[in-house]
Amino acid sequence: MKIATISSIGQNPGRLLPTPDQIMQLGRGLLLPLAGILVFLFLWYNAAMMINTSLGKFPGPVQVWEQSGGLLAEHRAERQRQTAFIERQEVRNAEILAADPQAQVTIRPYTGKPTFIDQIGTSLFTVLSGFVLASLIAIPLGILIGLNESAYAAVNPLIQLFKPVSPLAWLPLVTMVVSAVYVSDDPAFSKSFLTSMFTVLLCCLWPTVINTAVGVANVSKDLLNVSQVLRLNALTHVFKIIVPAGLPLMFTGLRLSLGIAWMVLIAAEMLAQNPGLGKFVWDEFQNGSSNSLGRIMVAVLVIGLIGFMLDRSMLLLQRGVSWDKNATLR
């Protein structure tokens, strides 16, 4: 929409004033969303004034803005402390080594508390791990059951059964299984990470499986005939005909899955205490200072924004790999 606006103005270099048509376009592309946001801020501001909680007034836009500044400042301060710590340690180790080159120096990692920004990083890493693993399972499974009706008949009841299960129901089971199975003295991943990730995985499998299966099952008869006449072997058939033909629906599934993954992750992190955004919200809630609600509200907005950006990235990916450039991508 915005691109169209800019380019259509560019096509009209002789005129200083945009045509009424262009104004309409500009309005729809830029001004209307802006107006929507302003109205929302106004309503929020006024509603916040009227809500009194045990932690003080509900945070309005201004407080939230201040809190986001505060969170960033905390992050910077923490980073400074970290570099200072590392420098101190390096200096100390250098001194020890200078005195006695044979000495064993210890390098201890910095153990500060994760900042809001760190927590965003953890959340993104967790959600993407879960999502990628889920896709690696879901796409082949979807292709299999899309191609083979017997496999579909066998798997479909299970999909229908597990699809509606809430992440909160999985979580205790996943937690117990991870604790029991993942025993290692030097764990590469923390248990809370694995718990959150597997919960995400279990919940975001299904849209990709179902959409891939539908996409694959509905490949046009003509293309299947072409494949038969050419006597393509099974592998070529799948990779040259089935996968490209199913790609648009596969991506629909992937986008749905990623959306679900992100939603599930926040809930899972709250309960699994994985150091991510969910835990941040939970800790602030338990903390109960006068800033807490504002900080939670910052988290809410950031969660929304990241979810939006994740979806956009999938869309860009889809545009990149899809042959169907004409398909309307929303």
Binding site: D222, L223, V226, Q228, V229, R231, K240, L247, D324
Partner: peptide, 18 residues
């Protein structure tokens, strides 16, 4: 069975769109 020694030109071209 179908095979390339009996090539078919389909009514609606049936080219692979990708």
């Amino acid at each position: 069975a179908p095979g390339p020694e009996r090539a078919v030109v389909f009514q609606n071209h049936s080219l692979l769109p990708w």
